[in-house]
Design a protein around this nucleic acid. Structure first.
Lengths: 257, 257
DNA sequence: TCAAAAGTGTTCGCGATACACCCATGC
DNA sequence: GCATGGGTGTATCGCGAACACTTTTGA
């Protein structure tokens, strides 16, 4: 085994080996938590895991292995949870309150075959937010989680530790970014219409935008290609389909800094 | 002893006790590093420590005690180094590359009376930047440092680990902040002239600003009080003295968000 | 034919920029 | 008096907000 992966474990012995491996090959007292944003039904949503045998939910997260950077840990955890590579990922804040995450207290009643030292009484967590295309994600459960859902940030259920605050802070960072960077193309399917893109921006910002001005602003970035096709089916004028041009996007980023 | 403090130690035995105490009462594998900005001689400067017995410099930093948050650790370290309380402090990034900080390798030749486990082969560091008033700081040396200097960010000497990158990233964050927040009042003395404030902004941004427009923009924030006095002595019209009004500043912050 | 929604053009106002002009001070 | 630099006013430009008008589509 060369990476912490608790999925598809055949039996308890194998699970125990995996946990032991993770303990021995990970940094202590520090972890990574990810706010994974997706867009579905005109709503911005966050990927949440239900902690097995409880009504508490958590964000996908995990420890940092000794042989990987913090960024790499975030990528690995996301690949494990979503099946996606090359995700847009951004570190936004590190959470370090003394009592924010007492794992040892949390697992105390579970009668696990490990000494208490395996679990931390305190951990600092580096928060990342990810932008993923909802339809491409195949959420993965494991021995710690018995449900996984896309939930709107303002309708979160009871969350473990300070994960509620982590989502709030991550959303704030995303909002601050979107004002001057068209990063949201990571959240859209390959082709989309201008009204669809506008709905995404509105969902992130939590406010309505002017149609005409939105269109002009986005097109002025010169990172979109208008296709010949249109999206038919609505009882109205068929909107054009657009596609992001990654090379132009890179060019735009360079011109900004 | 209730906090890590290596200053004014009477003898080696006491120093040894202090190090042992810090080892036993601190989180492992994680630390805090601070980019302390000051303004002097019309130059933005960063507080740097020279590592004892070497030509390598470092930023003020340290470990996080078990009973304090990461923010509190940063405040404690800064108070220890500068003597200042109530410093403006902002977390800006967490540095987590695998090989960024191998303390064990660094101290290997020093023949210290501690087993290797006392020193980390890997540490993640949470970066903070601080804004302080140069003239009020009384820099403090200790057993790890034999010089302390205010150095311009683009004239840094050889720095330990990735501290060069930490300064660069911190400066970038400060620049991004200053565009829409007049936070720099923490860097100025109680009273100052408009040209002096402009020099500070120019030093941070690395570019010249228009005098008239700068004045109008700053005054439009309504956080400055113009005093009756003027700064005399120059071979030219005597400029007005100004003072920041903390209450108005707080009011401005609230109106922005 | 009509309602709904997309596409496009025009106007307005504010804020940033550039720059002009006057004022005070030491040499 | 004059060079230097501070204080203030004004013209202009660009961008975003607001909104009107046209076009297309399914029902």
């Amino acid at each position: 085994m060369d990476s912490a992966n608790f999925g598809n474990l055949q039996d308890f012995a194998e699970l125990e080996r995996a946990i032991r491996w993770a303990f021995e090959n990970s940094m202590k007292g520090i972890s990574v938590d990810c706010v994974v944003f997706g867009f579905h039904d005109n709503q911005l949503r966050v990927l949440c895991l239900k902690v097995k045998g409880s009504d508490i939910w958590s964000l996908p997260g995990g420890h940092i292995q000794l042989n990987e950077s913090v960024d790499e840990a975030a990528y690995r955890i996301l690949k494990y949870r979503t099946g996606l590579d090359h995700i847009y990922l951004k570190q936004f804040y590190t959470f370090g309150e003394v009592n924010r995450a007492n794992v040892r207290a949390m697992v105390a009643g579970l009668k696990l075959p490990f000494p208490p030292e395996y679990f931390e009484t305190r951990a600092v967590s580096v928060g990342y937010y990810a932008l993923v295309e909802y339809s491409k994600v195949r959420p993965v459960l494991d021995f710690m989680s018995d449900d996984i859902q896309w939930i709107e940030p303002d309708k979160l259920p009871s969350m473990i530790f300070d994960h509620h605050e982590i989502v709030a802070t991550g959303l704030k960072s995303l909002r601050a970014q979107i004002d001057h960077l068209p990063i949201v193309y990571h959240l859209m399917p390959d082709t989309f219409t201008m009204p669809e893109l506008q709905k995404l921006h509105e969902a992130i910002l939590g406010e309505e935008l002017d149609r005409a001005n939105f269109q002009k602003r986005i097109l002025s970035y010169n990172i979109l290609e208008r296709l010949e096709e249109r999206r038919t089916g609505g009882a109205h004028k068929a909107p054009f389909l657009y596609r992001f041009i990654p090379e132009k996007y890179q060019e735009f980023l360079r011109s900004e800094f």
